[in-house]
Design a protein around this nucleic acid. Structure first.
Length: 697
DNA sequence: GAGCACTGC
């Protein structure tokens, strides 16, 4: 491939018609963490905070905002990055006395946002965190009877819905980041609409002047794209706009479509490197494979650069990479060096990298999407696709965090305009069984609930079948006693079912260990393409003939032994040596504690163990994975017992190439083929037993 | 023989 650092520039950029650019979303709200443990902060610091508050773009509109909140039951507030709406609006509401009857809830899709925002606002109010300003997220809460402003995750308030269907503790509920359209945000919004109708109607009946009722105000906060949708959903609502503040980013579109975006990204990088002033470059790519191939080619050409040029430091970044590798990007760039960061979507929202002045956007990402099947179950797909306009803007905004920046898009302006505005709401792309079961508990139906977007009928049907096969619903779609028990667990129904089955098989301790790891958000096993051999050698120690579930159990047991006998530092070292992610083990231990409490409430003894026996464990899991069973075919592939798909065991499984006659699996993922992940062997006779159980219902 | 990113209870 002929490529000279000073050669012709093949991409032919032209300047975009829009010179300045505002990003639409701020990933890390509330600024840096502030001291929050003491009851108050020094007066000079407080004065500085107050000055910063008054300089926020939203401060100018304070009185007008309060007026509108007073006049309308529902307000949709559209604000850009840096407007300060998430920290200021709750304080304005508190000061205005609009929340006399109850608390102000501010919901967030992510835990870190909820906790850090609460800290920031407590500091601004000059109060101790947990007093008048608090938060509530899974495994962590700080609030008291005096709390007036409560930041919480949307999952938390949806759980509260189960015990208090009117959310009567709150007189104002602010739904932040509503444009993200998480599954729980959508379910919350649907419920808020009916709750408000109920609560505010009883107010009218009592007539004006009486304050005995408990009306509800709703404020929806969103980034600017496709926000009118919220306005249409809440009839009579008022839409308000708040200006943001961000450095300008100059956008360049490619003049023609790029066939090979990896090659094109490489050329664009060297164009920047030779023609533009110092500043780090961030390249967005869909996945690890592209990152590794681009890393190689950039390195080859970087080595050939003349010695008087700045050198290039390449930093690959993706979630599966060992944590130490990812943190390389945060180290100061050495002198006379330009950092080149090759990242997946991880750099789009979750991680902010300092020093980035240039962004190269391939316009591609990988998206996980759940394909429901009318036989029950379904599978995930993981395919490369075009990004959305809102994520293109988010990526460009990454160049304007610290000063003016540049964004080079490897696609045309027409291609940008052809992109969907924003991602499809999660409710359209995920399994609904968990939410469906939760709603059944409070007498609601996903089918009749008025949602902003209605999920596909097939997806609904599939979830009903899954819940029926698990015994959570009967043929009349009514929730069963077993279903209520399952809903009590903060878990996917399939794993809740496995725990309940473990009572019969006397192995609750083992099943809890496994299920906790499976429902932790971080992966247990760390991959390293550089040390592939060392990884497989370390894995051998835990390998269990029955499959991946019992392999996980081996890891947990080994870690527990270390945890009891060794110091914290050596535990870490042990994990590193075995390519295990300690974060997953620690998170799983929190989850396990919570699951034990649920077991206790339901009269399941969580300490019952089956010792070294394997069958009880796989049988229990089998009750949860009833629709995830497949049988070996003569050609070595597997065929589902429910549904017709031909699946293969994922190469990461310990049972890959083992020709086990019958398997259960955690999930199916379609990439190039349909792969079963999280696989265990199951005796064929057990499948017959399961079938007989189904007959009885 | 293969691994986008999250997030929540």
């Amino acid at each position: 491939m002929p490529m000279r650092a000073n050669g012709p520039l093949p991409n032919g950029y032209h300047n975009s018609s829009s010179p300045a650019f505002n990003s639409t979303k701020t990933p890390k709200k509330g600024g840096p963490p502030l001291p929050t443990s003491s009851s108050s902060i020094s007066s000079s610091k407080h004065a500085l905070l107050q000055e910063q508050r008054s300089e926020l773009p939203i401060a100018k509109g304070k009185d007008a905002l309060i007026h509108e909140f007073r006049e309308h039951d529902v307000t949709v507030l559209l604000g850009e990055t840096g407007s300060g709406k998430t920290t200021q609006v709750p304080q304005y509401l508190l000061e205005s006395g609009l929340a006399r009857n109850g608390m102000i809830a501010v919901t967030q899709p992510r835990k870190v946002a909820a906790t850090s925002l609460a800290g920031r606002v407590a500091a601004e109010q000059n109060v101790a965190l947990g007093s008048s300003v608090g938060y509530s997220v899974r495994f962590d809460e700080r609030f008291s009877s005096q709390t007036r402003i409560k930041y919480m995750t949307d999952g938390m308030i949806v759980r509260e819905l189960m015990s208090d269907p009117s959310l009567s503790k709150y007189s104002i509920i602010i739904v932040d980041e509503a444009h993200e359209r998480s599954l729980r945000t959508d379910i919350l919004i649907a419920n808020l609409k009916t709750i408000q109708q109920r609560r505010n109607k009883s107010q009218d009946a009592k007539g004006k002047g009486k304050d005995t009722s408990n009306p509800l105000k709703i404020i929806i906060m969103s980034a600017t794209l496709d926000a009118e949708k919220f306005g249409r959903f809440f009839t009579g609502s008022k839409i308000l706009y708040v200006q943001g503040r961000q450095h300008p980013v100059k956008i360049y579109h490619s003049s023609q479509g790029q066939v090979d975006y990896v090659d094109s990204a490489m050329r664009t990088f060297f164009q920047i490197h030779t023609d533009y002033p110092p500043g780090d470059v961030l390249i967005f790519l869909p996945g690890q494979e592209d990152i590794e191939s681009l890393e190689k080619t950039i390195q080859i050409y970087a080595n050939q650069l003349p010695h008087d040029r700045m050198s290039v430091l390449i930093c690959p970044m993706y979630a599966a990479q060992a944590a130490g590798q990812n943190s390389k990007v945060f180290l100061a760039t050495p002198p006379n060096t330009r950092k080149c960061i090759l990242a997946t979507n991880i750099a789009e929202t979750s991680i902010t990298i300092p020093g980035v002045k240039y962004v190269i956007d391939t316009g591609k990402c990988k998206e996980k999407r759940y394909l429901a099947r009318n036989t029950g179950g379904g599978f995930d797909t993981l395919l490369t696709r075009d990004i959305t306009q809102s994520s293109a803007m988010q990526r460009a905004g990454r160049a304007g965090r610290e000063g003016a920046g540049h964004c080079f898009r490897l696609y045309t302006e027409d291609a940008f305009k052809a992109m969907p505005l924003s991602a499809e709401p999660e409710i359209m792309r995920c399994s609904l069984s968990s939410s469906l079961l939760q709603l059944k508990c409070i007498g609601q139906d996903l089918e009749t609930l008025e949602l902003m977007d209605q999920p596909a009928e097939e997806s609904m049907k599939s979830s009903l079948i899954v819940l029926y096969l698990l015994g959570a619903l009967n043929l009349q779609k009514e929730i069963t006693a077993l279903g209520r028990q399952m809903a009590a667990f903060p878990l996917e129904p399939i794993y809740a079912r496995a725990i309940i089955a473990s009572k019969e098989y006397g192995c609750t301790q083992e099943v809890l260990d496994i299920v906790s790891i499976l429902s932790a958000s971080s992966k247990l096993f760390i991959e390293s393409s550089e040390q592939r051999e060392a990884v497989s050698e370390a894995r051998k120690k835990f390998r269990h003939v029955c499959g991946d579930h019992l392999t996980i159990l081996n890891v947990v047991k080994a870690y527990q032994e270390i945890a009891y006998s060794e110091a914290k530092g050596s535990r870490k070292e042990w994990c590193r040596r075995h390519f295990l992610n300690e974060r997953a083990l620690l998170e799983a231990s929190d989850i396990r504690d919570q699951l034990r409490q649920t077991c206790q409430r339901l009269g399941i003894d969580h300490s019952v163990s089956c010792g070294d026996k394997d069958d009880p464990v796989t049988f229990s899991l089998g009750h949860g994975l009833v629709m995830n069973i497949a049988l070996l075919q003569p050609d070595g592939t597997y065929k589902q017992t429910i549904g017709q798909s031909i699946v293969k065991i994922h190469p990461s499984s310990v049972l890959c190439d083992k020709k086990i006659p019958a398997i259960i699996y955690d999930e199916l993922v379609y990439t190039n083929q349909i792969y079963a992940r999280g696989v265990s062997r199951i005796p064929k006779s057990f499948i017959v037993t399961l079938g007989a159980l189904k007959q009885q219902r």
